Each structure stands twice: as C-alpha cells, then as structure tokens.
Amino acid sequence: MKTIPYGRQSIEQEDIDAVIQTLTADYLTQGPKVKEFEDKFAEYIGSKFAVAVSNATAGLHIAVLALDLKQGERVITTPITFAASANCVRYAGGEVWFADIDSETYTLSLESTKKLVESKPKGFFKGIIPVDFGGLPVNLEKFRQLADKHGLWIIEDAAHAPGGYFTDSKGLKQNCGNNVYSDLTVFSFHPVKHIACGEGGMVTTNSEMLYRKLCSLRSHGIVKDNMNENHGGWYYEMQQLGYNYRLTDIQSALGITQLAKNERRVARRNEIASKYKDAFNGKVRYQSLPEGTLNAHHLFVIEVEDRKGLYDFLRTQNIYSQIHYIPVHTLPYYKAIGYQGADLKNAEKYYSKCISLPMYPSLTNKEQSFVIEKVLTYING
C-alpha cells in the first residue's frame, strides 16, 4: 500500500487551469480575483462580508485588533487547538485564559467557560474564541447568550469547518462563519484544509465597521477613501499600524475553484467518517455528533490507550496518522507564562489518547479499509 497521510490537498485540472489563466492575466496580486473569491465565499457561508488574508493566523491577528483588544486584556479559548488560536491574543499584548473542553465533542466546554467567566467580575474578560475542532461546529447560540450577559465579543475559529453547521433553538441551520451568533469568523486555506490555496485565510463578518477595519489592517493600515479635489489618484492615508496580510490573485483563483467543490467534498468526508464509525463503534471512542449538526470533518480522531504504540505501528504500514493537538497550555512558551497549573483535566486526558486517522476526499475505499484493518489489528492485540 502506498503512503497514506492523515490529510492532503485535492488538486484537479480545473484548479490548475484557473491558476494558469491568472498567471497570464494582468494581475498576480491585488487584482479582481481576490474580490471575486471574497464575494463567492461570503455568499457560500452566508455572511455579509469576507476579507481574504495571507493565512488564518493573520486573520486571527487582525480579528482581535479589529475588536480593539488592548494590552493586558483577557480572552478565553480552548487548549485543544493549534497555537494560533491563542497566539493572536498575545500578538496584541493580551492575556490568554483557557477553559476546558467537553469530553464528548472535544470543543470548548460551555460549562467550563461559564464557570470561568462567572468567577471574575464583569469586564474582567473581553472575548471568547471558540474553535470548531475537527470540523465540528460549536453551538454559538449558547455562547452568544453567555457573551451578551457579560459584554464579551466572539471570534469563531472555523479553520476546520467550512461547510459545517449547527441547528439553533429556532430550528434554523447556522453555517459556520455566517456570524449570526459571532462577531467575526476565521477560516484557513492551508493545503490539508477543505479549500487549498497553498496558504491563505478568510475573515467573515456582518458588521460593515469591522469589515472596513479588517480591510485596512490587512494592508498596512492604509485607506484611499479620503480623496478630494486637491488629491490625485495616487493619494492614500495610513491611518493605523497595519500589516501586509494580503492574499494574491494566484491563490484566490485556486480558492474559487476549490470553493465550488467544497459541498461535495464535505459529503465525501462524512461518508469516510461514517465508515470509520461503523468499524470502530463500541471499540474506541471518537468525537460525538450533537443532533442537528453537520461536522465538516477536517479530522477524524479516535482515542486509544496506547496512542504512541498505535502511531508507531501505523507508520510501519505507511499510514501517517497525526496528533491534534498538544494542549496549548503545556507548550513551553505558555508554561513559562504560568499555565502549567491550569485545571484542564479533560483536555489533558484527551491528549493522552487522541490520534487522527486519514481524512481527505480523495482517500479511496480501499485505502480506508486498509487503515481500519490495521487499527483494529493493533487494538485487538
């Protein structure tokens, strides 16, 4: 069996053709493909505005800046995520506070977050960054109720979840990133994600004010809206300290063709997940699926007692599984700040057992059957 990674991009001829067409056009960056990608992405997600950025980390950074996070202000997030979900707070000089995960969904626990928020006076925290871990949407309606009660903003980290949704109390499907219950949402276009642009990200919002801030922050803090009869077409103003976080037309062209295929690819990811669940039901734990929720399945994670043993065994079979993630509060940088004493038992227990199996649309039935066979062989001794 050939090498089977945990995730990989799916590039087809139409993707290649779109990139080649852009390479021969007038603009390689800051051209029409960026706006086209933004408009199509916003329509797909169901948000009013979308801002393309160089990567999801950049998107998280300008998201906290757009919400005016200041030095020393505190934000809550999950320890089971890629470090960028927390690092963006540190970039702005803020403090990261971790709440525990739900042991069934692996996402930020509403109860743990509520307990943490209510343990401090109102105004102590500024915001919450829930993560749609593995592709499973967080029920943001419930987090919004908590946030509104305590004056908090919400940034949804949906890097794993374009195409996923949850059902709210009114029976309405709420797409990840439509910002009905969040202020801003951030997506990733890394190659192993649903929409591959090489690198890239998108920030969505329903607020025109936040949209304008994001556009300025991703391009050096520069705006060109203040021209008058004394200024020519060259005129611009740098109104704040921004960054060069722009996405190129080349990447946007690829993103447009990838986006058009996301719905069927999410369906394929769910077919793969269903086959894993059928094979592993009653044998190993895996992420639960709340009623009325569509998991976009960036990952399929199982929990096993001998995680290191299974990881090593699968590599001998050319199956390259992965671990998602080392709890952020245990990383050396955050331990040095003083998080090593945090009471995050569910996150640490999850990490001791978690392993991500291959999950991507081009994974064949034969390859998946081989993965299942080898996992069961190992756990059955």
Score class of each variant (00 low, 15 high):
residue 3 T to L: 10
residue 4 I to H: 00
residue 8 R to H: 11
residue 12 E to T: 11
residue 13 Q to D: 11
residue 15 D to N: 07
residue 20 I to A: 08
residue 21 Q to M: 02
residue 24 T to V: 13
residue 26 D to Q: 05
residue 28 L to F: 06
residue 30 Q to S: 15
residue 32 P to F: 11
residue 33 K to P: 10
residue 37 F to K: 02
residue 39 D to K: 15
residue 41 F to C: 02
residue 45 I to Y: 10
residue 48 K to R: 06
residue 49 F to H: 10
residue 53 V to I: 14
residue 53 V to Q: 07
residue 54 S to R: 15
residue 55 N to P: 11
residue 56 A to V: 10
residue 59 G to E: 04
residue 64 V to G: 07
residue 65 L to C: 00
residue 68 D to V: 04
residue 69 L to E: 13
residue 70 K to Q: 15
residue 78 T to H: 06
residue 80 I to L: 10
residue 81 T to V: 09
residue 82 F to Y: 15
residue 85 S to Q: 09
residue 88 C to K: 05
residue 89 V to L: 10
residue 93 G to W: 04
residue 96 V to R: 07
residue 98 F to R: 14
residue 99 A to Q: 08
residue 100 D to P: 11
residue 106 Y to D: 12
residue 107 T to H: 13
residue 107 T to F: 04
residue 125 F to L: 01
residue 127 G to E: 11
residue 133 F to S: 06
residue 136 L to K: 14
residue 136 L to G: 09
residue 146 L to T: 00
residue 150 H to F: 12
residue 153 W to H: 09
residue 156 E to D: 09
residue 164 G to K: 06
residue 170 K to T: 10
residue 170 K to R: 15
residue 171 G to Q: 12
residue 175 N to Y: 04
residue 177 G to C: 01
residue 180 V to C: 05
residue 181 Y to H: 13
residue 182 S to A: 02
residue 184 L to G: 08
residue 184 L to T: 12
residue 185 T to W: 02
residue 191 P to D: 15
residue 193 K to H: 10
residue 195 I to Y: 12
residue 200 G to L: 01
residue 201 G to C: 11
residue 204 T to Y: 08
residue 209 M to K: 13
residue 224 K to Q: 12
residue 224 K to G: 06
residue 227 M to V: 11
residue 231 H to K: 13
residue 231 H to C: 09
residue 231 H to T: 03
residue 233 G to T: 05
residue 238 M to I: 07
residue 239 Q to F: 03
residue 246 R to C: 00
residue 248 T to V: 11
residue 250 I to A: 06
residue 253 A to E: 06
residue 255 G to Y: 08
residue 258 Q to W: 07
residue 261 K to G: 12
residue 264 R to P: 03
residue 265 R to L: 05
residue 267 A to N: 13
residue 271 E to I: 13
residue 272 I to G: 02
residue 277 K to P: 10
residue 280 F to N: 03
residue 287 Q to A: 04
residue 287 Q to R: 09
residue 289 L to M: 11
residue 291 E to V: 08
residue 298 H to Q: 08
residue 300 F to L: 14
residue 307 R to C: 12
residue 308 K to C: 01
residue 313 F to M: 04
residue 313 F to T: 08
residue 314 L to Y: 11
residue 317 Q to M: 02
residue 317 Q to N: 08
residue 319 I to T: 09
residue 319 I to H: 00
residue 320 Y to M: 10
residue 321 S to A: 14
residue 325 Y to C: 13
residue 328 V to T: 12
residue 339 Y to R: 15
residue 341 G to P: 00
residue 344 L to G: 05
residue 348 E to F: 01
residue 348 E to L: 02
residue 348 E to V: 11
residue 349 K to N: 08
residue 349 K to E: 09
residue 352 S to I: 06
residue 355 I to K: 09
residue 359 M to W: 03
residue 360 Y to L: 07
residue 360 Y to D: 06
residue 362 S to C: 08
residue 364 T to P: 13
residue 368 Q to Y: 14
residue 371 V to Y: 02
residue 372 I to K: 03
residue 372 I to G: 02
residue 373 E to S: 00
residue 376 L to G: 03
residue 378 Y to E: 05
residue 379 I to K: 03
residue 380 N to C: 02
